[in-house]
Computed example of a mutant assay.
Amino acid sequence: MGEVKIRKINDGTIAILDTQAKEKGYASRQEYLQDLLEKIAREEYQFETDVRYQFLISQYNELIEWLLSEVTLNTDKKEV
């Protein structure tokens, strides 16, 4: 497992992190920060996946609209 060091964090921020870790039931600030970093990394991946999914859905919707307009157009021509 790799190691990450963050330097020069002010004491107030560290105190807040310690309080949050304790309130959330973590054994240590280290454990809390590891969990937060893992969530941040996964959320970025999830965001990119969501963007690709939304693009695919919009392309699919455009195709369906086009197909419906073609079917309607061809149906109207046959009725005339």
Rank of each mutant, 00 (worst) to 15 (best):
S69P: 00
Y60H: 09
V80S: 13
Q30M: 07
L67A: 04
L73E: 09
Q20F: 00
S28F: 02
I16A: 08
V51W: 04
K78D: 12
L37A: 01
E79F: 13
E43R: 15
Q46H: 09
E44W: 13
Y26V: 03
Q59L: 06
S28T: 14
D11L: 04
N10Q: 01
T49C: 14
E70Q: 13
Y53E: 12
Q30E: 10
I9E: 07
S69M: 03
K77F: 08
N74P: 02
E62W: 05
I9C: 02
E31M: 05
G12T: 07
T19P: 00
E31R: 11
N61S: 03
Q59N: 11
V80M: 10
E70F: 03
I9A: 07
L33M: 06
D35K: 09
D35G: 03
I40N: 13
N74E: 00
A27N: 07
Y60A: 09
E43M: 14
L68F: 13
L36I: 07
R29Q: 00
E31T: 09
A27T: 02
I64C: 02
Q54T: 15
K5T: 05
T49S: 10
Y26N: 05
L63A: 14
R29F: 00
I6C: 01
Q59K: 06
R29K: 04
E44A: 15
L37G: 12
I6Y: 01
K24C: 10
I64E: 00
S58R: 13
L63G: 10
A27L: 02
I40T: 06
F55W: 10
E48Y: 02
K24M: 09
K78M: 15
G12E: 13
D35V: 11
V51A: 06
A15S: 08
E3I: 07
E23N: 15
F47C: 14
Y53I: 08
A21L: 00
V4T: 04
Q30N: 14
G12Q: 08
Q59S: 10
V51L: 07
D11Y: 08
K77H: 04
I57N: 00
K8H: 11
D76M: 15
R7F: 02
T49E: 15
L56R: 11
I57C: 04
A21F: 02
L73Q: 12
R7C: 03
R42T: 11
I64N: 01
Q30I: 10
A15T: 06
K77P: 12
L33K: 04
L33C: 04
L63W: 03
D11V: 09
D76F: 05
E3R: 01
N10L: 00
I64T: 09
K22V: 15
V80Q: 15
Q34W: 01
L37D: 01
N10H: 07
L33S: 00
I14G: 05
I57G: 01
T72P: 02
T72W: 01
T75H: 09
E43L: 15
D76W: 07
N10I: 04
Q54E: 07
S28P: 01
T75S: 15
